[in-house]
Structure formats: C-alpha cells, structure tokens
C-alpha cells in the first residue's frame, strides 16, 4: 500500500513538471528561454519517474534478483540523463548564439557586446 502511494505521488509530480516542459516550448518566445523549460522541467520530471521505478523495485526486491538489476540500471540511466541533458543544452545554446541568433527582448547581452568589441572567442 505504501509503495502504491509513493509511486502515485512521484508519478503525479513528474507528469506535472513534464507537462510544464512541453508548455514552455509553446509559450516562450525564443530558443534560449525554451531551452530553460525544456531542459530543467523535463530533467526534474524524469528524476521523479526514476524515483517511482526505484520505489517499485524496492517493494518487489525480496522475491526475485532481477528487481535489484532494475534498481541499479535505473540509477545508471538517471546519471546518463543528468550529464547529457545539461551538456546538450549548453551545446545548443552556444551554437545558436554563434550562428547569430540573438535572444528576443533581452535587457542585456554581454556576449554580443564582447563580440562587437572585436575580440575573438
């Protein structure tokens, strides 16, 4: 019963944040702000999906050894996701700024000022 409650709670939180990630793709005006929503909200949502899987596998761990494997491999998938999502977002932001895509409605842009100052990056 407690496994059921914890899994349901984690899945509700994860679906909430994943939905916000999808909403932010349509709501925000340019690439950089969309990256905020798309990276942070979906990563946080997937952390809670992994938490639900971990709770479920702990609940069934007494019987069969493959639930221990499920536990370890889910943690591994989470680590891969944390590293690759942040790095991918950084690469996309850098590439779009270098290709000349400026942030919409920005109040300050130090990177553009530096490039206009004539310094090579």
């Amino acid at each position: 019963m407690i496994v059921f409650l914890l899994v349901t709670l984690a899945l509700i939180v994860s679906l909430f944040f994943n939905t916000l990630g999808a909403v932010s793709l349509y709501r925000f005006p340019d690439v950089y702000t969309r990256l905020h929503g798309a990276t942070k909200c979906t990563t946080f949502g997937t952390i809670f999906i992994v938490a639900a899987v971990l709770v479920y596998s702990i609940g069934r761990m007494g019987g069969e050894p493959r639930f221990r494997v499920l536990f370890v491999h889910s943690i591994f998938a989470l680590m891969v996701l944390l590293i690759t999502n942040a790095t991918g977002a950084h690469a996309l932001a850098r590439a779009s700024h270098r290709s000349g895509l400026l942030p919409v409605g920005a109040v300050v842009d130090r990177l553009e000022e530096r490039r206009n100052g004539g310094e090579a990056l």
Partner: peptide, 22 residues
C-alpha cells in the same frame, strides 16, 4: 528543486526578463 519551482512559476505566469550576463 528550487530552480524547478521557480521556472514552473515563470512558465505559468509568463513573466520573464531575459538577458545574457557575465
């Protein structure tokens, strides 16, 4: 956790003031 609640509020209310700082 703090970041996600912050970004969630910004997504819902749409109140942003973006910029690139150093």
């Amino acid at each position: 956790a703090k970041a996600n609640i912050d970004v969630a509020i910004r997504v819902i209310t749409g109140k942003i003031r973006p910029g690139i700082v150093k």
